[in-house]
Design a protein around this nucleic acid. Structure first.
Lengths: 141, 141
DNA sequence: TTGCAACTACGAAGCGTTTCGTAATATCTT
DNA sequence: AAGATATTACGAAACGCTTCGTAGTTGCAA
């Protein structure tokens, strides 16, 4: 039995996670300042506080309440969270086909030569990995 | 002044759009049957009806109410809708970087050799297009 | 023609998310 | 010490989405 994994963050929660991923642990005040800057309008302080409290219950963040101003930090990793959200999105929007998603992302969009080169490099890596399987794969958990 | 474009469909609405895109115009009964088959549980008939009525108001579908059983059809194109949703998703989850999205989609996922080849072909097309711009681009709508 | 079955329209409840007001508490300043 | 300021906790309102019950209507069959 393992503990329930953190649920999919909502849009607001994701926005806060971005701040925490980018700037590291922060107080409600600091997070709220970042959010207000990102958006058009000012964000209510207690709104940010409330969301953080809910995120704490959900296990999306942890907090250090040693000081009066509690310090929050992300409890989920950026890549894992993005991967989770991506899975749901691919299922809902592209019927589970990651290929369609990639085609759409690259096709109907301005992509720089540099970015294309990066993708090519990634494709090469993947194909090498596929054609020369690691004989020690059995050891992996 | 142009009419307001159809808004971003919700999850349920998107599910219905998938049915319409795949099978063409259909009655509420037919759509509801498809949905019930897709999901675990049975979907209430009036639930599907209600969502379709809301979609009609939003301009996501049109309907032919000549017969007693109204026939609904998609009023938005699949690619455009997916593109719209993709844009929002990239902004919210990957900070607007389509590259990060593609890397994540290809990186942490099992992708077949055939799919990789298709992506390579697409990359080639894009690069050709970038290096030899069509002088008649102005003619395009 | 009468009654049953299917369909549409509509209202409302339930739920999660977001937002904010208010009260209680702690810290700082003078 | 007293008052001002910042912070936390909590409740609730507002909103959108989803679901369903019910009423009214239409068509079909016996």
């Amino acid at each position: 039995m393992s503990k329930a994994p953190p649920p999919k963050p909502t849009d607001s929660e994701l926005e806060i996670l971005h701040v925490l991923w980018q700037h590291g642990p922060a107080t409600v005040r600091a997070i709220n300042d970042h959010l207000s800057q990102r958006r058009q309008a000012e964000v209510g302080y207690t709104t940010t506080l409330k969301i953080l409290q809910l995120m704490l219950e959900k296990g999306l963040v942890r907090r250090d309440d040693a000081d009066r101003s509690h310090v929050y930090r992300a409890a989920v990793r950026e890549q894992e969270t993005q991967g989770l959200l991506l899975d749901k999105f691919v299922d809902a929007t592209f019927g589970g086909s990651a290929l369609k998603l990639v085609m759409q992302a690259l096709g109907s969009r301005q992509t720089s030569a540099d970015e294309l080169a990066q993708i090519r490099r990634l494709l090469n890596d993947i194909e090498i990995q596929n054609s020369t399987p690691n004989p020690n794969d059995d050891d992996r958990a």
